[in-house]
């Protein structure tokens, strides 16, 4: 018997639901961070709670899903909260940090904490690069040392929380097969 249209494998629906759910969660975290900035009076410093969702997705569902979740979050947050310039900053941060996190994870040398730390630092680097282009000045790189340290601290916190979440999730993701 051939499979009909309305008899698609349950895995597809599960994966779609997981992506939608996590993208929504990441978006809410982005919004919370806009409402309550954890910047301690230093511009550009943030905790990056949304990256929590991306990292959990990266480990639990696989890089493709994590990437899609991240892109949905940035696009929708740009439309809803941050505007065009905010979108440019978050997109640069998201793309660079995701690429680096993916590569660092692939080396197999680091735990989720190391991956998260790299994500935090390279997110900040991506944003500072966009800022340098937008103001046509390299002077902004004077903030980079501060943003490295803040990226390491926030990345470590997010990494530890991601680790604790991943430990508590059921062993197998819903039919995701880690693609």
């Amino acid at each position: 018997m051939t499979r009909s249209h309305n008899n698609r494998p349950a895995g597809d629906v599960n994966r779609l639901t997981a992506v939608a759910l996590m993208a929504a969660l990441a978006l809410i975290f982005s919004y919370i961070e806009i409402l309550i900035p954890f910047n301690f009076g230093i511009p550009g410093v943030k905790l990056g709670v949304a990256n929590l969702v991306v990292i959990v997705a990266l480990y639990y569902l696989g890089p493709r899903y994590a990437f899609v979740i991240n892109m949905i979050r940035v696009a929708v947050a740009g439309l809803l909260f941050t505007g065009l310039f905010g979108f440019c900053y978050s997109m640069a941060g998201a793309l660079l940090s995701f690429a680096v996190m993916y590569l660092i994870k692939k080396t197999g040398l680091f735990s989720v904490t190391g991956v998260s730390v790299c994500g935090g630092v390279f997110h900040n680097l991506g944003q500072i690069l966009v800022a340098a282009v937008l103001i046509s000045s390299l002077k902004i790189f004077a903030y980079f040392p501060v943003l490295i340290i803040s990226g390491v601290i926030s990345g470590t916190i997010i990494g530890i929380v991601s680790y604790l979440i991943l430990q508590r999730l059921p062993k197998r993701a819903p039919e995701s097969s880690g693609r």
Binding site: F110, V117, G151, Y163
Partner: peptide
């Protein structure tokens, strides 16, 4: 939660 490479990475970046 932490591996040797993570500690080295964090130390180097700080």
């Amino acid at each position: 939660m932490f591996r040797k490479a993570d500690i080295i990475l964090i130390a180097v970046l700080i």
